[in-house]
Simulated assay, not measured.
Amino acid sequence: MPIQIGEIRAARAGEDSKITAGTDRAVTFGGQAKATVPAGAPLVSDPVELPLDALSRLSISVYLPQPTPISTFHWDGKQTAYIGDGNQTASETIATAQTTDARTLVSEILVDAPANDGAVIAIGDSITDGNGATLDADNRWPDVLAERLVSKHVSVLNAGISGARLLDDAMGVKASARFDRDVLAQPGVKAVILLIGINDISWPGTPFAPEKSLPSLAALTTGYLQLAAQAHAHNLIIIGGTLTPFEGALSGTPLDAYYTPEKEALRQKVNNWIRTSGAFDAVVDFDLLLRDPVHPTRLLPEFDSGDHLHPGDKGNRAMAAAIDLGQLIKN
């Protein structure tokens, strides 16, 4: 259903629900403060004059004048959003009734950066989305990669969706179905880093996919080849990431069958193919980087967020540091 917008304002973010004084700007749509988001379609605002430094954090305040059910959102946003009563869009501090770490309504922010050399897009699942990273700390591995690329005038876009899969829809559509929207349609994209497939392997036999059988190696590699072909058809560099260790993942929960020796054997075959197939312009071996040398089917404890699946802050920083910038940038 359409969404009625009463007012939107943008500012540099301050601490918690505060904005930086003096940076508040009105966001308009065809010169008007009120607007309607069409059902199933985006709504793009007028340009906003708000100078920003690299890695700046923005606050987008949205007033909804009527009760508005949200049917789609980014549930694992890892950033606190503040929800209050009434129109507080021009307030320097939101009087908060509740918070959420999901992202709603705003899907992307376009920044006019004349001195830039394009963008790198990280597409994947919860490991890219930042599930194991600290809330509000910008410690996802794409965040840390963005820090490394500031001096190169290259931005990083995070297209990770927690629960995403290569071959099937789930928490978000399958990678092949969203590759056009999340990668090819993004302005200035030069390269893509692909890290996806662990949910295709691990979900079968769990409450997430109780009737699903393990995908074949051929089905997975065909999926990867399709994404590589799409990237190369648009003259993009595509880097493949090996799937990270997951023994012990989510044990003691209803997803206790997330890991099995059979699933591990398939992960090893997939990783061998990623390393040796030549399908990608380069490979970043996240598996080798993050695994425990003493127990290589497990994450190294210092990189583990604690659930034996998602890297923590230190693991995310190690992932970003392992990426060869020369493989992303051709100039």
Rank of each mutant, 00 (worst) to 15 (best):
I5K: 03
G6P: 08
R9G: 04
E15Q: 15
E15I: 13
D16P: 09
K18R: 15
A26G: 04
V27W: 01
T28L: 05
T28A: 01
G31N: 04
T36D: 12
V37G: 07
P47H: 07
D53R: 14
A54D: 15
I60Y: 06
Y63C: 09
S71N: 14
S71H: 13
D76Y: 13
A81T: 14
E92W: 12
T100H: 15
D101I: 12
D101K: 12
R103K: 14
I109W: 02
I109M: 03
G118P: 04
S126G: 11
S126L: 11
T134Q: 09
D136M: 04
A137W: 01
R140W: 12
P142N: 11
V150Q: 13
S155I: 10
G160W: 07
R165V: 03
L167A: 02
A177Y: 07
A185L: 11
V192W: 00
L194M: 13
I196P: 03
D200T: 02
S202V: 06
P204H: 01
P204W: 03
P215V: 03
A219Y: 04
T221A: 03
Q226E: 14
Q230A: 10
H234W: 01
N235L: 00
I239H: 00
G241Y: 07
L243R: 05
D256E: 12
P261V: 12
E262P: 06
N271M: 09
N272E: 15
T276Q: 13
S277I: 05
A282D: 08
D285N: 10
F286S: 05
D287R: 08
L289N: 00
R298F: 07
F303H: 03
D307G: 05
G315V: 02
A321V: 00
I323S: 00
I323L: 00
I323Q: 00
I329P: 02
